[in-house]
Design a protein around this nucleic acid. Sequence first.
DNA 1: AGATTTTTATGCGAAACGGTATAAAATATG
DNA 2: CATATTTTATACCGTTTCGCATAAAAATCT
Lengths: 203, 203
Amino acid sequence: MRSEKKQGRPRAFDAKTVIGQAREVFWDKGFSAASLDTLSAATKLNRPSLYGAFGDKEELYLDALEDYREDSMDVLSEALDPALPLRDNLASVYATALKIYLHGETAARGCFLISTATAEAIQHARVREVLGRSLNDFDDAIKERMELAVERGELPADADPAILARLASAVMHSLAVRARAGDTRETLEALARSGVDLICGRK
Amino acid sequence: MRSEKKQGRPRAFDAKTVIGQAREVFWDKGFSAASLDTLSAATKLNRPSLYGAFGDKEELYLDALEDYREDSMDVLSEALDPALPLRDNLASVYATALKIYLHGETAARGCFLISTATAEAIQHARVREVLGRSLNDFDDAIKERMELAVERGELPADADPAILARLASAVMHSLAVRARAGDTRETLEALARSGVDLICGRK
DNA sequence: AGATTTTTATGCGAAACGGTATAAAATATG
DNA sequence: CATATTTTATACCGTTTCGCATAAAAATCT
């Protein structure tokens, strides 16, 4: 007879929480500079537990990347609320992005994917794959909203939704890099505003 | 009496060359994952020589970053030849960037600064400083060309050169990230073209 | 030619690294 | 209550890491 509860000693942690704690470490230090000791301390899990639950360091990092990607897509689709004008949507995308990017203990963290996954993308094909897929998913979500905007007449009929979406993402990539490089909030907000103007037309 | 030649055993290497070889290693692996053994092998210098000439790993990396920054500025000012139209200039900036970004043994390398310095920018303040300064210098060089374009009437009189420059850079930041993420040349060239169109106006 | 100075070569050493073996603890099953 | 199963805790292992100590080599200076 099998109960719904798994046999054996129950886990003393929540996997999702642990991945979030690991993500913070990777976000600050990058993948290579994050040691298992640091990860173990941050998650309050000793190494064998980490290995048992997530596999080796690379797999834990990949889990953290996927988790971030999912969170980002959720935040993005909230910001792209079709009940609001495209211009407001884009401004909202950039504003929520900056809220995330500018948070940080010692310095602004930027985007977790762009700031840390790029460094490993050559040596670790799976990291490159997640990074590429994340960027594409982001583009596609914006593209859908752009298509709607063309249908509605928020954008000219001859506007190319795919291209505009990539340009809109490009501004966000720049915000991510510049935030991590230490740009001020004011500078970044100005770039975000001009990005909105350029893509949606100056108001 | 002192001769112009330095006393002692002469160096068996050219510093600039060595920094270039170290840069290749850092570019592929990132700062943290690049070991001194690998750097020593790539430069054909044993570790004590590396230390004597450049200091520790971080200082060598900073030298590589500075070197890349200088090279990039040189390439940029060549591309921004004021004898040619602004549109051609921008297209040339993106084309030369992509030539560099898409080169790579196993996968496209992207931009050395954006791909590797971002990861270390939180933990190493000096890296963050070089990264920030490099992005700003790049913006400024483009801004100068934009100012000229406004004077000449290549851009509308009310165009803001500083903002347009940052947007132009933003497209390049995105090219850098996407190249390292594995985007195809065609996709990247399309983004570059649409970036030119957006900033200079569709032809 | 001998002394001085700088660079090269070999090799070491302490610390940190990722990963795991082993055994105790905590639950479900029979 | 005994057994099976899973997770936790401690400790360890071999490797790699960075950085340096030491001495030989190659040049200039006196």
